[in-house]
Design a protein around this nucleic acid. Structure first.
Lengths: 344, 344
DNA sequence: CTGAAAGCGCTTACAG
DNA sequence: CTGAAAGCGCTTACAG
């Protein structure tokens, strides 16, 4: 006489119907149940209906995790982003999830505001044997670089189209975009132009943008040191401090180039508070082309780059390099566009 | 003589260092390596240093997936949200990720714009044997309901504090919030008040909000049928259509109650275009208290509820019910606040 | 403190 | 078309 099975305490509250349970009820071998889910063509119609009936009766949901061992694939891709409040990041995640979902993959998300937490997230991702890892920006700690270089997992860095990349990269030329926008402002006759950035752990990323601005200013023989970095949240309020600071250093400040529409909108709101006309008293340009850029008065002249496209491209690079073995394409430039409205 | 091991083709590009590899190099049993990672106190200092050295040399990252079998826990929680462009959703995810990350859990994210894709996401989550599932709103298909009821996995529905819930819920009283805001508007003397909602698959969710508005109007003996639902993206532009439509039905329209600040901001921008003063020609109130609410001119009177708190509370409910076995608390009301500014 | 045995739920590779 | 055997990388429960 057999002793009755004692349920494992941890699964007391879980149903945990297994393939064997289904097989037993259907009166077939577990192998047939496995085949039913993975290669139905190999299973006779008769067996198929028996299995389907048993699976439905038991409410069986196949365990996707076990496939990871045998196939070596988890079909999960991990992404690390600095924040979801940044519309660019939100769009990228949306693009990622869209492509991944349509191709049978899932997204594991980590939010990391500094390099230490980025490293922790990457370790956990590797521990979960994810099929691919997507990072924000190109500025990562040496530990992250080393961890990802050693492993065979595909890695895509986003937003910049110029490396060096750990493995693959997708984005646009931050330098060129900022350079071109600065030139447009200079051509319109603005001379005292301030630059407002936002401190995050992706400084290298932002520094390419800042460089574009400064080189353009230098080439035009203009002052290139009116640069201010905010540290608070990337909300509108932060812009006020930046404006105050720059005006103190250069009372004749004529224009502002902001690294984000959120900052630029804040500057425009602050001008409204001061009764200043934009662009007559202060011209404002920025990066983002978020919803608000077209709605605000005056419309914001800004750089548009598609976060959705970047996310989707990053996901495609991962999936393709998984399917083919090694990446075919190592870098994708999704380009940018300058949207001219009335703020400069 | 043994035949040399043939590497599995799928892992050709992966390092895949295993616990056994580390054990072999360190000259100890795999069990000691396992203990080293999970219960270091049980391992002698001598053994510990040998293992650490071997693990570092091989670049070993413990496989977190296998623990799922034996412990029955994946330490991953899944969340389904309709969109990341909605700041409320973004905040909730941020709150979720914060709490989860601090407690050693990870987030798997799915974006689902309709009930069918929500169902697919839930199936995949269950397949991955996630430790908990967080849903947006309380309006789900029967299939989702059934799937989640049968399983032992903890489930939290968000944003509403009134059920019926599949298992647990966290949010605030949508009805009360809308009712109170409508009363405030009525008390200020507005009579022709329009309501602007946004169609999504969480209609039940929104309908509680709409009900609050309509009951308040009915009790005051005012017209309650000036309701319009937009279908486009939740951007600013959508508000224009809503306003046009409601004005056509009621030219004397005095006020607008929007289900989102994004809609309200769009309405205010549209008023600016028409040269209408807010609140004199048209008063505007809404829900959200996003950044823009405080920045826009005039400041937006709006309902504030913390998405971050809701996310964190949902994560806590999952983790606690996992730790304790069964949920202690089934419902949490995080409350709301009405922020009065100048738009009404 | 250490490690040999059995098993988590599946899949691969194969014999029937 | 079907299924018995071995194994994926780890952990539990236990004997030493």
């Amino acid at each position: 006489m057999k002793t009755p099975e004692t349920p494992r305490s941890t699964s007391a509250t879980r149903t945990n119907v297994t393939m064997s349970d289904v097989a037993r009820l259907a009166g077939v071998s577990p192998m047939s149940v496995s085949n039913f889910y993975n290669q139905p063509a190999k299973v006779s119609i008769d067996t198929r209906s028996k299995i389907l009936e048993a699976a439905t009766a038991l409410g069986y949901v196949p365990n996707l995790l076990t496939g990871v061992y045998t196939s070596g694939r988890s079909r999960v891709v991990g992404a690390v982003v600095p924040s979801l409040h940044n519309p660019s990041c939100a769009s990228m995640i949306q693009g990622l999830e869209d492509f991944l979902g349509q191709n049978g993959y899932r997204l594991m998300l980590a939010i990391a505001e500094n390099q230490a937490s980025e490293y922790r997230a990457v370790r956990v991702f590797l521990g979960h044997r994810l099929d691919g890892i997507i990072l924000t920006g190109t500025d990562h700690s040496h530990d992250v670089f080393q961890l990802l270089t050693r492993t065979g997992v595909p890695v895509v860095e986003t937003w910049s189209s110029s490396g060096p990349f750990i493995k693959m990269g997708v984005g646009f030329s931050l330098f060129e975009a900022a350079f071109e926008m600065a030139q447009i402002m200079i051509n319109r006759g603005y001379q005292q132009i301030g630059f407002v950035g936002h401190h995050s752990y992706n400084n290298l990323h932002l520094s390419k943008f800042q460089n574009g601005f400064q080189i353009a200013m230098r080439e035009a023989g203009l002052r290139e040191d009116l640069v201010y970095f905010t540290t608070g949240t990337l909300g509108f309020a932060t812009a006020k401090f930046a404006l105050d600071h720059l005006l103190q250093r250069e009372p004749k400040l004529q224009a502002l180039f902001c690294a984000s529409d959120l900052l630029a909108a804040g500057a425009i709101f602050e001008c409204a508070r001061r009764g200043w006309s934009v662009p007559d008293r202060l011209a404002v340009a920025s990066y983002g082309d978020y919803d608000i850029a077209a709605e605000i008065k005056p419309g914001l002249t800004t750089i548009r780059a598609s976060g959705h496209d970047i996310g989707a491209a990053a996901a495609r690079m991962i999936v393709e390099s998984l399917e083919v073995g090694l990446p075919l394409i190592k870098t994708i430039d999704v380009g940018y566009e300058i949207i001219v409205r009335d703020s400069i």
